[in-house]
Simulated scan of single mutants.
Amino acid sequence: MINRPSDTADRAAALTGALRLDGADAAAVAALLHAHGEPTLPRITDDDVTALRAVADRLWDVFAAPDVGTAAGLLNGLLTEYAAPPRLSAHDGTAWHLHADRGDEASWAEWFAATSALALAVVLAERKSVPGGLCASPTCGRPFAMTGRGAPRRYCSARCGSRERVAAHRRAQK
């Protein structure tokens, strides 16, 4: 399901981080998807998690891309492999929304790849810059989507940025 591209890009970052850094299991993935807009708690299997983790590995490379050309190339590869012409859907009692995966029988991994790549591509096209990054905090490294206005972000959250500024201040005081 695609709501606002920024919401879907944020979901891509959250799920990529959970799968790559947290070792999320099926229950954690289902809860995260529900928290990011799935209308009901989805049924996720261990096989789904394995396939989702493979997609997260590829999305990680998008978030780590050093420049817009590299990010665009990686996203184009994902779109070529996973996306289909967008279609409107109102499944499971949801409001009409776009899907870019290859049909209602698409696996969770195919859906995750197609919707995430499309959302991150929209963010890239709108911002004319990389669609995300990896947190600059050496104790974090979580992926994040750059969906806001203003200067490019370095940290995944205000908390990480504040923690690093405090640490730098303390180092300077010594």
Score class of each variant (00 low, 15 high):
76 N>Q: 15
79 L>S: 12
58 R>L: 13
61 D>Q: 13
37 G>F: 04
56 A>I: 02
65 A>C: 11
54 A>D: 11
32 L>K: 01
78 L>T: 08
86 P>C: 08
61 D>E: 12
53 R>E: 08
77 G>D: 15
64 A>V: 09
35 A>L: 08
39 P>C: 04
92 D>Y: 08
36 H>D: 07
65 A>I: 12
67 D>V: 03
45 T>I: 03
40 T>C: 00
76 N>C: 09
55 V>P: 02
39 P>T: 04
91 H>G: 02
38 E>A: 05
89 S>V: 10
43 R>K: 02
57 D>M: 03
36 H>Y: 08
62 V>D: 11
81 E>G: 13
77 G>K: 11
35 A>K: 06
39 P>K: 07
85 P>C: 07
41 L>A: 05
73 G>K: 13
73 G>P: 12
70 T>A: 13
78 L>I: 04
78 L>Q: 08
33 L>Q: 01
64 A>S: 12
78 L>W: 11
72 A>C: 12
73 G>S: 10
33 L>H: 03
38 E>S: 04
77 G>Q: 14
41 L>F: 02
48 D>V: 02
34 H>G: 04
37 G>T: 01
76 N>S: 14
77 G>E: 15
83 A>N: 07
86 P>H: 10
43 R>E: 04
81 E>P: 14
45 T>K: 02
45 T>G: 03
80 T>K: 15
80 T>N: 10
81 E>C: 08
73 G>C: 14
48 D>Q: 02
67 D>S: 12
60 W>E: 07
51 A>H: 09
83 A>L: 11
86 P>G: 14
71 A>P: 10
51 A>D: 15
66 P>Y: 15
45 T>S: 10
75 L>W: 06
65 A>K: 13
34 H>S: 06
58 R>Q: 14
79 L>D: 08
74 L>V: 08
71 A>K: 14
83 A>R: 08
43 R>N: 01
38 E>N: 08
42 P>V: 02
83 A>Y: 06
68 V>H: 11
73 G>F: 11
75 L>Y: 09
74 L>I: 10
34 H>A: 09
50 T>N: 06
62 V>A: 05
88 L>H: 14
39 P>L: 04
63 F>I: 08
91 H>T: 09
86 P>S: 10
80 T>P: 06
71 A>S: 12
70 T>F: 09
61 D>N: 12
85 P>Y: 12
69 G>T: 15
70 T>Q: 14
65 A>Y: 14
35 A>Q: 09
85 P>K: 07
64 A>P: 12
47 D>Y: 00
72 A>R: 14
42 P>I: 04
72 A>K: 15
36 H>I: 00
70 T>C: 11
90 A>D: 14
61 D>P: 10
47 D>A: 07
52 L>M: 01
90 A>R: 15
46 D>Y: 00
41 L>C: 03
66 P>A: 13
38 E>D: 14
34 H>Y: 07
61 D>L: 15
80 T>W: 13
33 L>Y: 02
34 H>D: 09
71 A>T: 13
42 P>D: 03
50 T>C: 01
84 A>L: 09
78 L>N: 12
86 P>W: 11
92 D>A: 05
35 A>W: 07
63 F>Y: 12
56 A>W: 03
